[in-house]
Amino acid sequence: MDRFSDQHYINRVIAGYSNEFAVLVDRYKNLVFTLAFRMIKDRQQAEEVCQDAFVKAYKSLYTFKGDSKFSTWIYKITYNTCLDHLKKFKKQKGAVYLEDLSGYELTAIENILDDIAEEEKNRKIQQSLDLLPAQDAFLLVLYYFDDLTIEEIAKVIGVNANNIKIRLFRSRKKLASILREQLAPEIIAYYENGNR
């Protein structure tokens, strides 16, 4: 199990020990792939984009100054590579309208998800994340899967921290709206059973 920091391996790679870049790849590949997959929605293309992001990082490793975390830097490269890919293939998902959900509806959705089988629950959640627009999905994954602060996320996406807070709120709302649509029959049954 490697115990050295990212900067140690970066210095080694710059010094000429190129193979040690594999340690950094292994450390971040799953999260980078998850980010790419949530934006691009296609496994194969996401893996290609993920590879491109790591190769770009390797080529410009000598420019990494160490003033931010390596993870922040690689996520930024991944984000920009995904945006380029989406522009190139003109992939547009349908718009998700922001709907105001009441506290009761949120509770109902949570209760329904807790009641259904684990496999079905995970499937519904994955489907909902798949339907979420690219940038919203990226933001939610970045916020929940890594311990980045709002300021660090703002650096990755290239906006200010207040903007991130607003986007995060909207992304959560869109996720709730999508889940409500996904679970519409179950919600109706839930209310019919007198759960209020």
Binding site: F33, K121, I125, S128, L175
Partner: peptide, 8 residues
């Protein structure tokens, strides 16, 4: 919800 979302 995101607790249940898995890392790919």
């Amino acid at each position: 919800i995101m607790e249940a979302a898995a890392l790919e």
